[in-house]
Design a protein around this nucleic acid. Structure first.
Lengths: 258, 258
DNA sequence: CGCGGTTTTGATGATTGTCAACGCAGGTGG
DNA sequence: CCACCTGCGTTGACAATCATCAAAACCGCG
């Protein structure tokens, strides 16, 4: 059962291993991106919105969120990066953080200095393309969050985000056999979905009473996968984009789909 | 008064001219991206979601929107690209369109084949960085739309989007002296903001009655800029990011701000 | 002139937010 | 050990926001 740790010491290498085969040099390069580590404690803000951006971060262990605060005190969570995900890539290319990175649990990240990333991206190698693919996948997730907030009911939103977690966790090798740990408070879900925590709570009750899923003390249990997919209007396509040069092994939510 | 046309024959070159100085070679390269033209008529869909992506498009003239359709028939507009904006950059890097591109008015775009863009990005030149800066700015706009849909009231959303248009139009050289053409229906505004057209209409009435702005027959008139900025919680920072290697001339909404 | 798309308005209802209260668990200090 | 606090989850009552349904006016266009 996953609670923010990964067997593999290098989450990015683990994530990219499906894209292979890699040459020895490429392996070395990818692994080198994971050597400089940094830790964060729960509730600590590692990156502040609008700070000058010197490093990108590759999540290794733990849960975190990227968010922006509004003048009125509310906030919008942009994404929940998982181990292997790259945070602050565009910030580094542009020179300034465009959002904050906050730890939810204890967090381990690898940091990579801006010039290193820039030179990798400029070298036109397959590693750069893989990084680009990973970044684009994160952008696709942001777009899906926009669709969630803009055009789906609260019920669909909650279900959609839960299913997104299920697929993404499976993609990084966490066995999510219709049940997985999700150490995220209802407040965080609300800030990601554009709802109030109270309403998220009610929606979760609805989902429970409809025998679709439960989410209690940080554990998701999906009881009716097809029903959940249906009310969420969930399609995992946006998480399974193929690169132009490599084809990451596709992860499917349904065990034995066509 | 702007209605989708630009004096300059090459919108990208016009946009990038502020980043200069460019060498003669760089000028030639940027201009070369604008030579292959393609037209689209109003309501025509130039790119369909999930199509294989072969070209990127650089908007030259006219209005368009990037959107995604939902199974239930509703849709979410992701962005309204303006002349000089690049559409489908990430699609090309990934091989497949992640959204649709639809013409609102008659549209002129330049198309650039994927290999051309890839080689420019791989060459580590300043042109590639400028393109990257432009793409990142569009991503920042998507994030702001997420914040809009997730955490702002309908009133603030509408005001925010209007102000975004005002700044973006001014950034591409359209004089928006508190009044500008915006040939966009209320239905389109609604699909961008996560509201119904009827509610957008009522919000526009509210804004009119509060003497903040009017939007009638495709023309926006801002009567109380400060008031509008206030209720929108608008900060133009997300549109004025500096590159790490160049500083595009900052465009300010307030004529004589500090 | 009629037609389709858009804007506008009213009446009504559903969804979601706000306010208030309580329980529960974990931590902290007496 | 217990009182106390704080954060989180839960529930109810109520209010505000926003959507839905319906109808009419308007406008450009064939």
């Amino acid at each position: 059962m996953y609670s923010g740790e990964l067997q593999n010491a290098n989450a990015l290498f683990s994530k990219f291993s499906g894209f292979g085969p890699w040459t020895e040099q490429e392996c070395w390069l990818i692994k080198s991106l994971g050597v400089r580590r940094r830790r964060g404690e729960a509730h600590q803000t590692l990156v502040y919105d609008n700070d000058p951006a010197g490093d990108i971060f590759i999540i290794q262990q733990g849960w975190s969120c990227v968010h922006k605060l509004l003048p009125n005190g509310s906030r919008q969570i942009i994404s929940f990066p998982l181990p292997g995900d790259i945070v602050g890539f565009s910030d580094v290319m542009v020179g300034r953080a465009t959002a904050s990175l906050e730890c939810i649990s204890e967090l381990v990240v690898a940091s990579v200095a801006a010039p290193v990333i820039r030179s990798i991206m400029a070298s036109n190698g397959r590693v750069g393309k893989a990084i680009y693919w990973a970044v684009e996948q994160n952008n696709a997730i942001v777009v899906e969050h926009l669709i969630n907030a803009g055009r789906r009911s609260a019920l669909a939103r909650v279900a959609h985000l839960i299913l997104e977690f299920a697929v993404r966790l499976r993609m990084i090798g966490v066995p999510t056999d219709l049940s997985f740990e999700l150490p995220i408070s209802q407040v965080l879900l609300a800030d990601a979905l554009g709802l109030t925590a109270i309403h998220v709570n009610r929606i979760l009750r609805q989902l429970r009473e409809a025998k679709l899923m439960t989410f209690k003390s940080g554990i998701v249990e999906i009881h009716d996968l097809e029903g959940l997919i249906k009310i969420a209007e969930f399609s995992e396509d946006y998480l399974n984009r193929q690169g132009d040069d490599f084809a990451p092994s596709s992860v499917r939510l349904r065990p034995n789909a066509v």
